[in-house]
Nucleic acid binder design. Structure first.
Lengths: 247, 247
DNA sequence: CGCCAAAAACTGGTCATACCAGTTGACCAC
DNA sequence: GTGGTCAACTGGTATGACCAGTTTTTGGCG
């Protein structure tokens, strides 16, 4: 299995480097950034590349730039958006257990409401999208990785059913974060993934517009995985198990 | 009351214009963008400005650029992150009711879990941060706008108490979205804002680490506001009440 | 000495123009 | 068909100049 080689433009590299310095605290909030021209020289790149990177940093609310004055580092915890989550996930030596825990917790908090709203607003329309996914899960129940991917599709369809754009956007951000450490978690979640009965039951509840039941089922389903994930995350936090399979 | 004039760099203007074209569907997903040099000429700006804007659009996952090939419009619903929410809020003639509804619903789904975790993990430390805020709310109970701002602080402190970075980042994004239409909603939420007893009770539950109670109180508090907000949003959707006070 | 305004020395913002580098598609030899 | 070349796109990088704000220095006046 070959992967496409990763190509990175200069401004991307500058962006990554500055972002890393900021989120790791090497550049403290409130501090002034070097002038653009100084950064050019220090990084050995053209000013345009630096400016593109700074514009992106400003959009991510990691820095604030001001015409005439020096650019300053912001407190990302106070200003950054959810997009930053996937960047916070990876540290020098593996993954940040607290970030993993955060993702898992938010998933558990949102999943029941997503199922509820999908049942309430989606009904048959959504159930018809869910059915073939469950069917494919049944067929692929051997491969945890495929199951994982199908479960993602399942939740995506459910989120679409909520007609809630905020949930949709959060799902996108969470998914990107999750995919970065998917290999690490597939084993831990295998129980949840193999619980086809629950997926089918949620789909059924959605079809019958039984919001209460869909909500309860989703809560139960994610709750089980959450406990194992939290345990695994604690293990990761304490015992240093970077890259190793947590299952 | 004069407001600071909006100063916008050229690349900001280009970004806004292209983003608007994309989210309104005037540029459909999958379509190719004009070449950078063509955009320069069409917009009457330098190529650097166009490039800065495109880099930001790429970061927001609204377009994908590829060295050598044409840049293409992405399906923002499938790829954009929560940061986009505040941009989706404003339409030609006011606010998008569905976006308002989405924000309110997510708030209701997260608030109980935030209170629960804050109680579980924060305890006195968080309660000590909450107390002065509640006190100030008591003092300022006359002005709904001040109450609004203090309530934000209250939730912010609670979110900090969860030790959950995902919640923190979602809070930041939601807050930005909310602040755009705050005037519209302050009146609707006045009931919730004046319910100082609930805020104090949550702070108390947090201090006693009573997670269950904190969760229940938060659910009740946001639920009440939600119903009024959803009713107001429907009204906004149906009857065209842009900018008008919904209270 | 202390204050304040002019000026110099920063800062980021915009511009024009080259040229490098990857992609695409047409075309042609094999 | 396969693979190669080439021309014409596309975006990526570089340079150097100048505009436009902000901050600091400076120097003169009270």
């Amino acid at each position: 299995m070959l992967k496409p080689v990763r190509k990175q433009s200069l401004s991307d590299a500058v962006f990554d480097q500055l972002r890393a310095h900021i989120v790791t605290g090497q550049m403290k909030a409130g501090a002034s950034l070097p002038a653009e021209r100084a950064l050019c020289e220090a990084l050995g790149v053209n000013r345009g590349a630096v400016r593109e990177a700074l514009k992106r940093l400003a959009q991510a609310r990691l820095v604030s730039v001001q015409h005439g004055g020096a650019s300053r580092v912001l407190d990302y915890r106070a200003s950054a958006g959810l997009e930053l989550l996937s960047d916070l996930l990876v540290t020098d030596d593996g993954f940040d257990a607290k970030v993993v825990r955060s993702v898992v917790e938010m998933r558990s908090a949102l999943a029941p409401d997503i199922a509820r709203l999908a049942a309430q607003r989606g009904g048959e329309r959504v159930a018809d999208a869910l059915a073939p996914i469950v069917e494919r899960m049944r067929a692929a129940s051997a491969d945890a990785r495929v199951l994982q991917s199908l479960a993602m599709e399942f939740w995506s369809a459910l989120v679409d059913g909520t007609d809630n754009v905020a949930y949709r956007l959060v799902y996108n951000s969470l998914r990107r974060t999750y995919e970065k450490c998917m290999d690490l978690l597939t084993g831990v979640l295998e129980d949840e993934l193999r619980d086809l009965r629950s997926y089918a039951a949620i789909a059924d509840a959605v079809r019958r517009r039984d919001a209460r039941r869909a909500e309860r089922l989703a809560r139960a389903l994610t709750h089980r995985g959450e406990e194992r994930l939290l345990a695994a995350a604690e293990l990761l936090e304490a015992g240093r198990a970077p890259k190793g399979d947590l299952a």
